[in-house]
């Protein structure tokens, strides 16, 4: 199992260099900064913090070129994105009512024997909608793959071959944050999951989100709306068992027990892990090492963990299912 380090945001207090040293990285490092979009090439500060020779894979620019070379793929890709946006909007419309009901029940005082089954049912309804949404997304991706066979198209195959060559000269991969949908789309189109092999990965913010099995968008206090976390898509699944929450202190009301509890129960058995500046989770030799990271617990607490344990210490550390869904 490849070593992976998931870090908190890097802009003001970069820790990527420390993480590279902890993982023992030495050789050239492949940079993926496609989430920065047109600023993809502005990697001077990142390279300085990393302290290793680096090769920018330039996935954002590659897709821009590829779209010009293969207009039919570009059109189909845009159509898929439009469909995904429409699906997201439909999902969001249904989600609002379910989340509101769940929050009300969780905040309600009263006889546990009366309320707890209702709470469980409310959270189950949210989880069912999430599962349905992911199913619709999967179907949309499959339809795109079957219609366009992107991997078999000359322009895509050429880019993937070029990326494979670039990666062959690198010992590790650094995956920065930014626009999660843009980043995830590029990673998927260029088949990065297969190309990464067993190389160690350091990722943060949107980069860390993209490595999880499910990508969860979240903000508890947006200017408008209830701030219901949404599932966006499947991630690459290289960091199983986690839902990472970058900028948690700014984006989440971590003192709001109902919100914390709902997030934890909704996405279990995955562990919801806030990743603020300075936070780090590392997986070495198949085990997640928690260093100062916190977890959202299904009783509404945010607990700090400092343990190093077996292959998957996170799920067993979570409160038991008897506390609710």
């Amino acid at each position: 199992m490849k070593p992976i380090a998931l870090l908190g945001p890097q802009r003001l207090h970069p820790t990527v260099g420390e993480a590279a040293r902890r993982l023992g990285l030495k050789g050239p490092c492949a940079l993926i900064t496609a989430g920065w979009q047109e600023r993809e090439d502005e990697t001077e500060e990142l390279e300085a913090a990393l302290g290793l020779p680096a090769v920018n894979l330039r996935l954002y620019a590659r897709w821009e070129r590829l779209r010009a070379e293969d207009p039919a793929l570009g059109v189909a890709h845009r159509a898929r994105q439009d469909r995904l946006r429409r699906l997201q909007s439909l999902y969001r419309g249904r989600l609002g009512g379910l989340m509101d009901a769940a929050r009300r029940l969780l905040a309600m005082a009263g006889e546990p024997a009366l309320l707890e089954p209702e709470r469980r049912s409310a959270v189950t309804a949210v989880r069912a909608l999430d599962a349905h949404h992911l199913q619709r997304i999967t179907e949309t991706h499959l339809a795109f793959e079957e219609a366009m066979h992107p991997g078999a198209r000359a322009a895509v195959a050429g880019q993937r071959a070029a990326l494979a060559r670039a990666l062959a000269g690198c010992d590790s991969v650094v995956l920065a944050g930014g626009h999660i949908a843009v980043l995830l789309g590029r990673l998927r189109l260029f088949g990065l999951e297969a190309l990464l092999g067993d190389k160690p990965i350091i990722a943060w913010s949107a980069g860390a989100m993209a490595l999880c099995e499910r990508v969860v968008l979240f903000h508890d206090s947006p200017p408008w709306g209830a701030g219901d976390a949404e599932l966006l898509d499947f991630g690459l699944g290289l960091a199983p068992g986690l839902v990472v929450l970058p900028h948690a202190k700014k984006r989440l009301r971590l003192a709001d027990r109902e919100r914390v509890l709902l997030m934890a129960r909704r996405f279990r058995p995955a562990a919801c892990v806030p990743l603020d500046p300075g936070d780090a989770i590392e997986r070495v030799d198949g085990a997640w090492r928690l260093e100062g990271a916190r977890l959202l617990a299904s009783d509404g607490d945010v607990r700090r963990s400092g343990s190093t344990a077996g292959p998957d210490p996170i799920a067993p550390a979570m409160p038991a299912a008897s506390e609710g869904v």
């Binding site: 944050g177 930014g178 999660i180 949908a181 949107a206 968008l217 979240f218 408008w224």
Partner: peptide, 13 residues
């Protein structure tokens, strides 16, 4: 934010 909503939900830097 209502007239020109930013990419709050999509961007995690």
């Amino acid at each position: 934010s209502w007239l020109f909503p930013g990419h709050l939900w999509m961007v995690y830097e």
